[in-house]
Each structure stands twice: as structure tokens, then as C-alpha cells.
Simulated assay, not measured.
Amino acid sequence: MPPNEPGIHSTISPRFCGGNIDCKELVEGSILYLPIPVPGGMFSVGDGHALQGDGEVSTQAIECPMDVVDLTFTLIDDLNISMPRANTPAGWITFGFHEDLDEACFIALEGMLDLMEELYGYSRKEAYTLASLTVNMRITQIVNGTKGVHAILPHDSFIN
């Protein structure tokens, strides 16, 4: 998704509204939630990877063609998010992107605490305490000028 600013926007770096996220947990069956900063969305997709490790450290991954891509779009009017999040086979994921790796970690963690409050009704303090026990923080990428971190809450972390 493009930011709501005039001009040409690079697709190289990840950003609050999407971009080159490069998270290996975004696989078939994942649901990616993105903020929509511009009317009409203007979504684009590309840069498929057949193999990539956590913490993409250079511009190298095993690129693969995306000849057949099946995407379904659903507009959720009452979803108010400021960063991407995803529901994947690995669990719920929140992202943080920033030039500073520490700041990217805090952004991803804050997003996860928000999500834990929404999903389970925890207070902020409860979510923060439980995050130390259940949430895995991973480096998404250190390449492209913007650092990426994703926080993963495995689906089996809590029993409803």
C-alpha cells in the first residue's frame, strides 16, 4: 500500500502500510492486515521468495516467479491499525519497521500488546507480562535501510 504522500514511493523498504516486508512466515493461508492510507488502496504485490532466512541480511533470497497468485481482499471498516499485522499458520504476527533496530522492536511489541488486549481482553500490564512468556521476537530484515522486527504469538499460547 502506498503512503498518503505525493510523489513516487520506492518498494524496496518496508513501511507502516506494507512495502517489502520479507517475512518468511507470510505463507499460503496467511491473512495480512494493512493500514489503508489512500482512497482505493492501490495495492501491488511482487518479490516472491522460495527461500529466505529470518533477518534478511543482504538483498539475496531465492526469488521465484509469481505466475499464479490467488489473493482475496476484504475491507474491514472498523479495524484501526497503524502497522501491518498477520494471522499465519505460525501464529499472530505484528511488525515494527524503523531505521533503528531497537525502535523496530518496540513498535512490533506495542502492536502485539494491542493485539493481545483486543483478542483476549487482557489489560496492558497483563499483556506485557504474558508477552515475556509467549511472544517470540524475530528480526525480519536488516537490509534495505529499514530494519524489520516481527513479534509472533503462537496460536496455542492461550486456551480460550
Rank of each mutant, 00 (worst) to 15 (best):
F73R: 13
N87M: 08
C23D: 15
T72I: 07
F97M: 12
Y33W: 15
G148E: 00
I21Y: 03
P39K: 12
V27E: 11
P14G: 03
M42T: 11
I159A: 06
T140S: 10
T134K: 04
G145Q: 02
D54R: 13
F95R: 05
L32W: 04
M66I: 14
S82Q: 02
M112E: 09
I159M: 03
H49M: 10
D156S: 05
D54H: 11
A61T: 06
E5D: 08
A50V: 11
C64D: 02
D100T: 06
E117S: 03
S58T: 14
T140M: 03
L34P: 12
G91Y: 03
A131G: 07
I8L: 13
L51P: 01
E103F: 04
H49P: 01
L109I: 14
G148Q: 00
L71Y: 08
S157D: 00
C105A: 09
E126K: 04
R85I: 05
M112W: 02
I8P: 05
Y33K: 12
G111Q: 06
I62Y: 05
Y128G: 01
G91S: 10
I159H: 05
A50I: 11
D102L: 03
G55E: 07
N144A: 04
S30G: 08
I152E: 01
G46D: 15
I107F: 08
V27F: 04
N20R: 02
R15Y: 12
T146Y: 00
P84A: 04
N80D: 11
G41V: 08
S30A: 13
A108Y: 03
D47Y: 15
C105H: 09
E28L: 15
G18Y: 03
A131D: 02
G7T: 09
I12W: 04
N160F: 03
D77V: 07
S58Q: 12
D77I: 08
D47K: 14
A131H: 03
A61F: 08
P14R: 05
I152A: 00
E63W: 07
M66N: 06
K125P: 01
T72Q: 12
E110A: 13
G121M: 07
S13L: 06
G53E: 14
G41A: 09
N136M: 05
M42C: 12
C64W: 04
T146I: 13
C17W: 10
E99I: 12
G148Y: 00
P14Y: 01
T140V: 08
E25R: 13
L32A: 11
A151H: 00
